[in-house]
């Protein structure tokens, strides 16, 4: 347990600088975005006021300033996409960087007097924590940014929106920020299960190299099949036999089977088949 925590902390440290850069980039780009957009909006408002229009008329023509102006722009989603892409790449890099690079750190890692699965769990945990960290901080950033917008745009022209309305106004944010805990667990549970499966795929490749890629893809395919098998059954031979709650329970079970399979195979590969 102690070694697992040490390794997790160590894995976090290895990506931390880049991670802070990602956080900073998100905050800076989105802040610049909201300042720029609210100023542009106020620019038009002031122009129209000078022409002698009333605030009511301007609101009718120009519309009130909504936070979704920012959330639908690339200045907002750009950094999110960069963060998602970086973490997706890092899911692979977190393993491969130990094999490649100037010094092969993997020798050291595999010679630690601790179960090799701790490496697996530590790497997985750091990915999860980094994802959840970004997801949480983005929420705070939205609040900060909407406060900035309120400083620039007077209340008369501001569309009042709470956090949930902001999130609801934007499609992919709803996947990232479901309104109920259970949906949150479902969305992120599936995501983390996928990380486990990808990790196992990587270990297949690291164990059997070229042939391992094939095994990895095959494993991912079987995992997907097992996971969605209740749905497949439901829409084919059983024709809607299961009630939604039953289907949910079954998919929790198949999800756990996939995770267990991934852990078991990874453990086997790390102890019996892996190569430095």
């Amino acid at each position: 347990m102690k070694n697992y925590l040490k390794l997790t902390n160590f894995e976090l440290s290895r990506f931390f600088k880049l991670y802070v850069v990602l956080i900073g980039l998100t905050l800076v780009m989105q802040t610049v975005g909201i300042i720029w957009m609210s100023n542009t909006y106020m620019g038009s408002v002031e122009g129209l006021l000078l022409e002698g229009n009333t605030a009511e008329l301007i609101k009718m023509n120009l519309g009130t300033f909504s936070f979704s102006t920012l959330t639908t722009s690339l200045l907002f989603s750009g950094p999110i996409i960069i963060c998602i892409a970086s973490l997706l790449i890092y899911v692979f890099l977190i393993w491969y960087r130990d094999w490649f690079g100037k010094n092969t750190f993997v020798y050291r890692l595999f010679m630690l007097p601790t179960a090799r699965m701790n490496l697996f769990f530590a790497k997985a945990t750091s990915i999860f924590l980094m994802v959840l960290g970004l997801v949480s901080l983005q929420l705070v950033f939205i609040l900060i940014e909407s406060q900035i917008a309120k400083l620039i745009v007077p209340t008369t022209y501001m569309e009042s929106q709470n956090l949930n309305q902001i999130i609801n106004g934007f499609d992919y944010m709803r996947v990232l920020y479901p309104t109920t805990l259970i949906e949150f667990l479902i969305n992120y549970g599936i995501g983390f299960m996928a990380v486990f499966v990808i990790f196992t795929g990587i270990l297949f490749e690291r164990s059997f190299r070229l042939k391992g890629i094939l095994f990895g893809i095959l494993f991912a395919g079987i995992s997907l099949f097992v996971f969605i098998s209740p749905i497949l059954l439901q829409v084919t031979i059983l024709e809607g036999f299961f009630y939604p709650v039953e289907l949910f329970i079954l998919m929790v079970i198949t999800g756990l089977i996939v995770i267990a399979g991934s852990v078991w195979i990874s453990n086997y590969l790390l102890n019996k088949k892996i190569r430095v």
Partner: peptide, 23 residues
């Protein structure tokens, strides 16, 4: 020693708990 891990955990838990209570 574990400050990165601890800070990240605190940030995540605080924000997400607040978010779900708020929501």
């Amino acid at each position: 020693r574990f400050w990165k891990l601890i800070i990240l955990l605190i940030v995540i838990i605080t924000i997400l708990v607040t978010y779900f209570v708020h929501t």
